[in-house]
Design a protein around this nucleic acid. Structure first.
Lengths: 249, 249
DNA sequence: TCATTTTCAGTCAAAAATAATCAAAATGGA
DNA sequence: TCCATTTTGATTATTTTTGACTGAAAATGA
């Protein structure tokens, strides 16, 4: 069993049971306890689990923030996986942008133990992160009750007043020919403003959205530094030709 | 079971039952009483429970610090009454500012069927009014998780970009000599900015706050157009001398 | 009030879990 | 294929957690 695969198994096991001992995980994965401990250390640093003396616990048990009704429930495993990858790129001290898409929202559980500053227009992100170490800057603007986020020119102006180390952006469609496309112009406008004001741009895109085109094209591939995805290499071989960093394992 | 998980169990048990003895907790977690005592000491220090002789109690039973909703529930009748008066002043088509105080929050139920635009930095106000006819402009800035509202210079700048017909403002203290005073400079800064940008300023102030002084004086009586209160005329006769409209019936 | 019972905090040694170390095994390019 | 690097598992020393025991403190009840 590969290293990545084992980690995946550990997360699933812990998520399902709520808690697991090193012994249990060792039995479950046929790896030695020493290896499990090493894995747990890394995963705790990445914000995937909560490390305990004797094993690990589900984060949500430790940090009981009420979960918000989200249509994010689709492709949850894929999203969790790619978010776990993205979370590893975030270091204490970072300032990051997060847009109001459901994929980016899935990043929240992995951020709770990080000492970072988040600039976002998404209220669900804020609910999810209240009571954590994270410091938040709320982007104001016209409030969209359906998406529970602020939009419009005031929001764009707000973003332009800040710089961030990293931007985490979602998209509805992603293709080599058309770049990034969205179903909502208002959301896209925000994402684009974030892209402009971030040093490094991470696109979070689950495999279902790759090679799909949504109606409003809002950014090119060149504007993205790193594509974070659950897609396997053979699904995205067309992308290997262009200069974009791909993070999928 | 790890000790982190045991602590989690203890909190849940105490929260559910209201109180628990060391013996009960020992049985419930299969740990010795000595261990439970050690846990309780730590958890009491962390502010998770209240330690009693013989066991532990739920914090809320002992130390009634008010959450936002609870705080709003106090003086409910008074606040409801004055809010009903204030609501009559609001007409369809108005644009209004609302600050993040608990009195102003109580205005929400009276606004649900009005066709107005609200500019606010208070997330509780937004939750309360999602799904209504009200259109909302969210004020961005540094997010204060305790008050669930945005503050700081960006928030002030946001407010300065708008004009409103009416501002609805709360205060912690109100007196003829010192005008309006607050316990939080950050909140006061927001209220003041709203006052500056509104045609008419309504101060919502229940009788308990009249003739009280909080530590930070942030506005004068001249800046207020109308005082909305539940106080009877004899309680506020000193105010009759100054030119302020009083709305208390 | 005072005696009795219960609960408590501190100490200690045993047990459990961990981090550190190192050699073997697996992996991945040239 | 071979070599360099990474990952793994076993071993050991160290740290953390635990339960039992103690005298002291607090609650109880006559």
């Amino acid at each position: 069993m590969s290293y990545q695969n084992r980690k995946h198994k550990i997360v699933n096991f812990v998520e399902e049971k709520g808690e697991a001992s090193v012994k249990e995980l060792s039995d479950h994965t046929n790896a030695s306890e020493a290896t499990i401990r090493r894995d747990l250390i890394q995963m705790a640093e990445a914000g995937l689990i909560f490390r305990t003396h004797g094993g690990a616990m589900k984060l949500s048990l430790v940090n009981p923030t009420f979960t918000f009704a989200q249509k994010a429930a689709r492709n949850l495993d894929k999203k969790d996986y790619l978010c776990s990858l993205a979370a590893k790129e975030i270091n204490d001290g970072d300032t990051i942008f997060m847009d109001c898409g459901s994929t980016v929202f899935s990043l929240c559980p992995f951020l709770k133990n990080k000492q970072i500053k988040i600039i976002t227009n998404s209220l669900p992100v804020i609910y999810e992160l209240t009571g954590t170490k994270v410091s938040i800057n709320l982007i104001g603007g016209e409030f969209d009750t359906e998406r529970q986020a602020a939009h419009g020119s005031m929001a764009v102006e707000h973003i332009r007043r800040y710089h961030a180390d990293k931007a985490f952006i979602g998209t509805d469609g992603f293709s080599v020919e058309e770049g990034l496309s969205a179903n909502s112009e208002r959301e896209a406008e925000i994402s684009l403003a974030m892209i402009d004001r971030a040093k490094t741009v991470y696109l979070l895109c689950d495999s279902a959205k790759i090679n799909k085109k949504a109606y409003f094209q809002f950014a090119t591939l060149k504007q993205v530094d790193t594509l974070v995805t659950d897609a396997k290499n053979n699904e995205i071989k067309a992308l290997k030709k262009i200069s974009i960093r791909i993070l999928n394992h």
